[in-house]
Nucleic acid binder design. Sequence first.
DNA 1: TTAGGGTTAG
Length: 649
Amino acid sequence: MVSLARKLIASRNPSPISLESQEALQPFIPFSRLQETKLLESHLVSLLDNCSSLIQIKQVHAHVIRKGLDQCCYVLAKLLRMLTKINVPMNPYPRLVFHQVEYGNPFLWTALIRGYSIQGPLEEAVHLYNAMRREDISPVSFTLTALFKGCSDELELNLGRQIHCHGIKLGGFCKDMFVHNTLIDMYVKCGCLDCGRKVFDEMYERDVISWTSLIVAYSKAGDMAAAVELFERLPVKDLVAWTAMVSGCARNGKPREALEFFHRMQSAGVETDELTLVAVISACAQLGAAKYANWARDVAEGYGFGPANHVMVGSALIDMYSKCGNVEEAYKVFEKMREKNVFSYSSMIVGFAMHGCANAALDLFEEMVKTEVKPNKVTFIGVLMACTHAGLVERGRDLFDRMEKHYVVEPSIEHYACMIDLLGRAGQLEEALELIKAMPMEPNSGAWGALLGACRIHGNPEIAEVAGHRLFELEPDSIGNYVLLGNTYASAGRWEDVLEVRKLIKQKLLRKDPSRSWIEGKEGVIHEFYAGDMTHPNSKEVKEALEDLVGRLKSCGYEPNLSSVPYDLSEEHKRRILLTHSEKLALAYGLLITDTGSAIRIMKNLRICEDCHSFMCGASQITGREIIVRDNKRFHHFRNGVCSCGNFW
DNA sequence: TTAGGGTTAG
C-alpha cells in the first residue's frame, strides 16, 4: 500500500483532501476506551524515553503495532525523536515509520524534519517542510526551531532568513519566545550578529535566554564592552548569564575582570556549577600565579567539584597548573582523575611540552592512543611542540606523517607551523622553507613567523629576509617581525640593514613592547621589572645582589654573550645593557625575597635571550636554587647548571 | 517538545 503521506511528498500538486476530511475519517472511540488508550500511549512514550539503542526502540515499535497504535502520531513522533537522539539515519527506518502513517499530524512531520535538520541533508528537511505546508498542515514552533537549528549548523544564513520571513507570519509566531531565541542563535552562529540583535530588539517579550544568547555572541566576537553593557541591563541574572560573563572575560584575555564577575556572582548568592568553575580556573591560568592557582583549586573543591570526579574541572586544573609553572602538580591532578577525555590528555601533553618534558609528553601520547580516547588536532600540536622543544626532528616528522594516515586528523595550518618551527629550530632552515612552499594552503603569519624566529636563532639573514618581507605584508603593524629581522641582521653584523629596518619601524610609528619580567612575592604580590629599570623600591639591594651574583658567576667562567645585544655599540656598553635585562633583575630580587629551599619563578613577556639563558643556568648551579622562567612561549627549568629546554627554544 | 554558559593550541 502506498501511504497517503508518501503520495503527498511525491506530489507537486496539493492533495484534494483537507484537514476537515481527515478529522471526519477518525473512528468514534467511547470515552472509557479513550482514557485507556491515552494511558497506553503515555506508557509507550515513557518506554521509548528509556530506550538507548535501536534494538530497544524496535522492540517498543513492535509492541506499538501489537497494541494497534501504529497510526498514533503522539507515540510515533516520540519514536522518531528517540531515533534522532541515538543518531539513527533518517533513511530508511525512521522514514518508513513516517510513511506508514495515513494522516500525519504536525508533530510527526516535525519529528522527521528535525531528524533531517540535525543529521542532514538540510534540503530534505526543507522539502518536507514545504510538503507539509502544501498540505495545509500548520507548522508548530518546534518545526521552525528545528529548521533554524539546521540552518545554524550548516551556516545557511539565506535559507534561515527565508524561513524566518515566511514562517513566522505563517504560523502566527510573532510573539513566540522559543522561536525568536532560536532565531537569534541562528543569525549569530551564521555570523550576522547585527541580525541577531535586530531580532532581540524587536522581540515582543524577552527572557534570560534571549539576553544570554546575545551576550555570548558579543563576547565571542571579542566585543566585551557590548556584552557587559547588555549584562548590566539584564533584569534577572541567572547562573548561566553570570557564567557567560566570567568565561567571556577569560576568553578575551581579561582574567581579573573574570574574577571580579565571579566575586559579584557569589555576593549575589547565585549558585556555582562546573562550567563556572572551569571559567574561573581558566582565568587563573592566565594570571600564571601560584596564589591564584591554589585559590581556584580550593574554590572548586569547596563547591564539591574536585578533579577526581569532574573531568572538565580536572582538565582545566591541569592546564592552569602547567601555565602557572607547576607541571608536577598538573600531573598529580591528571593521575587523580578517574575519567580522562581528550582535553585532559591534550592539556597534560601540552603542559609537558611547554615545560620541555618531551619524553613525558610522547610517552603519554602513546599511552593515550591505547585507550578509547582519540587524539585530536590539539593533541598533535602538543606532541609536535614537545618534539620541537627537544629537537626531535625525526620523531616529529614521523608523527606528522602518521597523524592523518593512522589517526585521521588532517594536518592544519597550525600543524604545518609546528613542523616549520621544529625543522627551523633544529637548524634545518632550507627544509623548513621547502615545507612552507609545499603547504597545501596559503602559509599564514604563524608559519612565516616560525621560520623567521628560526633564522634569528641560527643567524640566517637571507632566509630571514624572505620570511620577514612576507610577514610585513601579512602583518604590517606587528613590531615583533621587524625586531626579529633587525636582530638577525645585527647578529650577522649587517648594521646598514639593521638601520633600514629601524627606519621602517619609525615610519610606521610602531612602538616596541618593552621587555619586562615579574615575580610573585609574599602573599601573591607581583613585582615587575623593566629592562634597565631601577625604580623598584628595593632597587639598591637588587643591584647589589646582582653584582654579587655576576662576580661569583665570572669566577666560574661566565662570560657575557655580547651578540645578544642587537645594537652597534661598544663592548662595554653592551655589557652594561645585558646586566639590566629584566629577568636578571627579577632573579636578583627573587634571591632576596624567597626562602632558600624554594624554586624562584619568573615570568617574562618576551623570549629569553641567549645571555640571560646561560646566566640562569650558571645561577642555578652556584646558588643551588631551581629557577623557573616562563617566557612568551614556554617554560625553562634551570637546575644544577642545566636547562630543561636543552638549549632548544 | 524546542532555546542560553565549557576546558586543550594559536
